[in-house]
């Protein structure tokens, strides 16, 4: 289980997150949607302290970290319990596909090289990148790099996978390919929190949609509730903006 309580974050005087609460149960797949610049990515990055929140608590499983006095060990604990998939893939560009998936297992999880290799090959097979294991990231398409990045994150056995706009740097075809990979991961029961602008994908994949605007969670519910029957005015406007005319048709 992952729980965010009273999370706030400002950049200089700009309040990006204000008092955000969010709970995700094990096995849930939750998507955060909303206009650009409303703190969706910042919320995700506060969970593993890539951005240090000003206030609030983050809980993953048995570990609760309070922004008031987080120890280095606690922050590290959040990273160990979560995995992250970045918009720009962020594979280590000086390492092959296989090394990318193996290295963290060896140096962070202290697995033997043999064990890490077997696990890496298994995960690469799942994302369909086994044939590319000896290539460098610069030799791969963006979609392929992102699939390797997913394999790398999954191989660390995180309690939750955080996906930060995983397909927004990709063209439509590659987007489909990465989305299919994420669907496969979902079938294995991985808990996921996804920031995305791919509304159709979120609607079809997720148990729950969280709508954010201006640093707040405005509304959350099942895809049906949010897309067919939004309660809040701001959600309605956003949905109408996304599906201008008879948006009901899509649902």
């Amino acid at each position: 289980m992952i729980k965010v309580e009273g999370l706030s974050k400002s950049f200089n005087d700009n309040k990006v997150l204000e008092n955000v609460d969010l709970t995700i149960e094990n096995g849930e797949i939750v998507s955060i949607i909303g206009p650009s610049g409303t703190g969706k990515t910042t919320l995700l990055r506060c969970i593993n302290y890539l951005e240090r929140p000003d206030k609030g608590k983050v809980t993953i499983d048995d570990l609760t970290v309070d922004a008031d006095n987080p120890s280095k060990k606690d922050i590290h604990g959040l990273c160990l319990r979560s995995g992250m998939v970045f918009q720009s893939y962020n594979l280590f560009h000086n390492k092959t596909v296989l090394e990318n998936v193996m290295e963290a297992q060896v140096i962070v999880k202290k697995r033997s090289r043999k064990e890490a290799r077997e696990r890496a090959l298994e995960e690469l097979k799942k994302v369909g990148m086994l044939d590319w294991k000896d290539h460098y990231p610069s030799q791969l398409s963006g979609g392929q790099q992102q699939r390797v990045a997913i394999a790398r994150a999954i191989s660390m056995d995180p309690s939750i996978l955080l996906l930060d706009e995983p397909t927004s740097a990709l063209d439509p075809e590659l987007t489909k390919e990465v989305q299919q990979t994420i669907r496969n991961i979902a079938k294995d029961g991985m808990t996921m929190l996804i920031v995305t602008h791919e509304i159709e994908f979120a609607r079809e994949l997720c148990n729950r949609i969280v709508f954010m605007d201006e640093g707040h969670i405005v509304e959350q519910g099942t895809p049906k509730e949010i897309f067919s029957n939004p309660k809040e005015e701001r959600t309605k406007k956003f949905i109408q903006f996304l599906f201008p005319q008879d948006y009901q048709i899509y649902i």
């Binding site: 593993n48 890539l50 990273c79 962020n90 000086n94 963290a104 962070v108």
Partner: peptide
């Protein structure tokens, strides 16, 4: 920055980030 963030998210310690990411990439 993204290379260091990737290592952070994977749970590398500060020393591991230095030895495994910064040194090999910076050395080149």
């Amino acid at each position: 920055k993204e290379q260091i963030e990737a290592a952070w998210a994977l749970g590398y310690t500060k020393i591991q980030r230095f030895l495994k990411v910064i040194v090999p990439q910076g050395l080149f």
